[in-house]
Write a protein that binds this DNA or RNA. Sequence first.
DNA 1: TATAATTAAATTGTATGCAATATGATTGTA
DNA 2: TACAATCATATTGCATACAATTTAATTATA
Lengths: 144, 144
Amino acid sequence: MKELDKLKLENQLCFPLYACSKEVIKKYKPFLDEIDLTYTQYITMMVLWDKKEINVKELGNYLYLDSGTLTPVLKKLENKKYIKRSRSKKDERNLIISITELGMNLKNKSKNIPSKMSNCVNLNQEETSELYKLLYKMLLNFKN
Amino acid sequence: MKELDKLKLENQLCFPLYACSKEVIKKYKPFLDEIDLTYTQYITMMVLWDKKEINVKELGNYLYLDSGTLTPVLKKLENKKYIKRSRSKKDERNLIISITELGMNLKNKSKNIPSKMSNCVNLNQEETSELYKLLYKMLLNFKN
DNA sequence: TATAATTAAATTGTATGCAATATGATTGTA
DNA sequence: TACAATCATATTGCATACAATTTAATTATA
């Protein structure tokens, strides 16, 4: 490839990554609207459905988000009564996020979303798992 | 996989897509800072380095962005003198974006960015092209 | 033990991104 | 030709993202 062709949009790897990510999230919207969550709120709830209780820092490690993004998201989830926010007794710097019963109930209402989403993606089992593998190889490398 | 395991963060395809996209864009930042562009401004310039002149609607088709996002980005690029914005004489609804000489000069200053970026990605040639292929398969499907 | 360094969240400021709506221009059609 | 429908862009409102800074708590160390 010529040096300056490298600056063409269609020769970038990052661009389809960026565009695909946005388009997938847009596909989620109608499903997430039904349970009145945004995408960021949804992935936050996913961690909490699994962990039940976690502090903001750890949550940010899972989600690749910092407190600047999470603080307002968590306040909104608290307003919706899906989580509680309270300072750790052991170390007052830590804010403990814990899921409420209402928050746990939301998991049941969400259980069909993943399969609805995979129906929107035109990749077969094998392609999906290959894509997954490559994305995590890249992603985990960025952690270091 | 159990029904409810499908709601675990690590079983999602969209999540590594979302996280990876953000992390890659973060990796760009130091390189883009040198030429004082944001990522969105950079991909906009990429289209213009190639097309020289384009209207907002077409530009949005390439970038998967709408006028709500592009209008402010384009105003900023105009302030930096990299582009000109002018209404089409043939159809006054269309805003024609055209690159300036200063904008074209920026291409030269950017020519090393793609290779600097590929050094940040721990995928080999084959993996990169496989990832590229899968992402575009997904992405183009969303167009319909 | 004072206090310097570090840490976790919150805050601030800037830049997207998108849905919904508004505005103005053009096109289709009764 | 009026005027309804459509189209391209701009605007508004809301929700992220993230860098940089601030604040309050904890830890390390002179």
